[in-house]
């Protein structure tokens, strides 16, 4: 049986370093390979931190969108024990 892929939305708006990356870990812990994590953040450092995280852990940043007053980062989980 395969699990349906899920989309996990993480709202980190209003929290600053290390807030967004901390929230991302919690979502990653819950996620399975194939899932998509959507991280909403106001911390400008989230962009580069999440990209570096994805490079290091072998996951993929699908898109980074500058929304009105916040950033939306969409991540595909490719690697998870």
């Amino acid at each position: 049986m395969t699990q349906a892929e899920q989309r996990i939305v993480v709202d980190s708006r209003g929290s600053f370093c290390p807030g967004p990356i901390t929230d991302l870990y919690k979502a990653y812990r819950r996620a399975n390979v194939g899932d998509v994590i959507e991280l909403l953040a106001t911390d400008p450092a989230a962009k580069s931190d999440v990209q570096a995280w994805a490079r290091k852990t072998g996951n993929e940043v699908l898109e980074i969108v500058d929304e009105q007053g916040y950033i939306r980062i969409v991540i595909k989980v490719l690697r998870k024990r």
């Binding site: 870990y25 990653y28 570096a52 998870k80 024990r81």
Partner: peptide, 21 residues
Amino acid sequence: VTFFSMDSVDPKKKVVYSLDG
């Protein structure tokens, strides 16, 4: 080592595993 997210520890083998393997 940055971006380390711990998954588990094998106390017998003395190995720490991260979520990304």
